[in-house]
Every structure is written in structure tokens, then in C-alpha cells.
């Protein structure tokens, strides 16, 4: 069953700015989250460097046994990570449009927000969870 599991946002220096689960997941300790986020940031850099052809971007999608990890790198260097069930359709598109738009509207347009600072916007949180859980419900997944 297609499911959106969680969204993480990683800043320009590899720090974790935001993380949110959309369904019940096995908990990950906060320190481990920080480490995972920064190692993902590093892996994206290394994969671009190791590319067999010139001019590669960072990782856009990683497929593991039990999940897909979609990653979207904005032009300014922020990284969005979306963890989904394998073969969840349109996840990359969702990241590029819906999630990025919400981020721009509720986080970047907030005059009190500073780049690469932890995201503590309630409106962003509410809207994001609402949209993503609506998508999950459409696929028949409860919160």
C-alpha cells in the first residue's frame, strides 16, 4: 500500500532543520536523526563526485528493501527527504510542488525565520501534516 512515512529537511550545512512522521513509526533518537541527516547530506555529495558521467546532481531516489527515500535538492542547497513505501507514486512530484510550496509560504516568507535555523512554524507543520495525511487516507492508510 503506498504510504508517506516521514519528511525531513536538511539545511545547507547538513544540519537537520525539521522532521515529521505522518504515520506511527519505530522511534529514532534525536541524536541519531541528526547523524542520519548529516550523513545523507554527505552521501549526496559523494555520489555526485563518484558519478561515472560528468555533472551529476546528488541522490534523488534511494530504493531500499522496505522503503523509498526521495530527496530533493533546492537551488539554494536545502535538502528535502521524503520516506515512503516502495513504489509510492508521485512522491518526487509531491516534494517538488506541494512540500516545497508549503515550505516557501510558511517558512521562508516568515520574516522571523533565519536560513539554516531549526523550523518551528506551527502553520507549516499543520498544513504539511494535513496534506500528507490526506494523501495517505486516499490510499487507505490511517494516521
Amino acid at each position: 500500500m503506498p504510504t508517506l512515512y516521514s519528511l525531513w529537511i536538511v539545511g545547507r550545512n547538513g544540519g537537520l532543520l525539521y522532521s515529521r512522521d505522518f504515520v506511527q513509526l519505530p522511534p529514532i533518537e534525536f541524536n541519531d536523526k541528526l547523524r542520519l541527516a548529516s550523513s545523507w547530506f554527505g552521501m549526496c555529495g559523494i555520489s555526485a563526485q563518484l558519478s561515472p558521467v560528468p555533472d551529476s546532481s546528488g541522490i534523488q531516489l534511494m530504493q531500499a528493501d522496505t522503503f523509498d527515500l526521495h530527496s530533493f535538492h533546492t537551488l539554494t542547497g536545502t535538502t528535502f527527504m521524503l520516506l515512503t513505501e516502495p513504489h509510492t507514486p508521485d512522491a518526487a512530484e509531491l516534494l517538488r510542488t506541494t512540500v516545497y510550496e508549503l515550505y516557501c509560504d510558511y517558512v521562508l516568507k516568515n520574516p522571523f525565520h533565519e536560513m539554516d535555523q531549526v523550523i518551528k512554524s506551527e502553520l507549516f507543520d499543520q498544513n504539511l501534516v494535513e496534506r500528507c495525511q490526506a494523501i495517505n487516507r486516499r490510499w487507505g492508510v490511517g494516521a
Binding site: 519505530p26 542520519l36 550523513s39 531500499a64 522496505t66
Partner: peptide, 25 residues
């Protein structure tokens, strides 16, 4: 490349949403 694969597997294991009994990272 070896390091990349090693850390990818560690990351995949840590993020695994289906396994509630996880080892410490």
C-alpha cells in the same frame, strides 16, 4: 565508494520503517 555503501546500509537499517526492534546506530 566502499564508505558510501557502508553508510548507506547503516542509514537504510536505521530508517527502516518496518522493523520496530532496532539495534543501536
Amino acid at each position: 565508494m566502499f564508505g558510501l555503501f557502508w553508510s548507506m546500509r547503516a542509514l537504510a537499517t536505521a530508517l527502516d520503517p518496518k522493523n520496530p526492534t532496532k539495534q543501536q546506530m
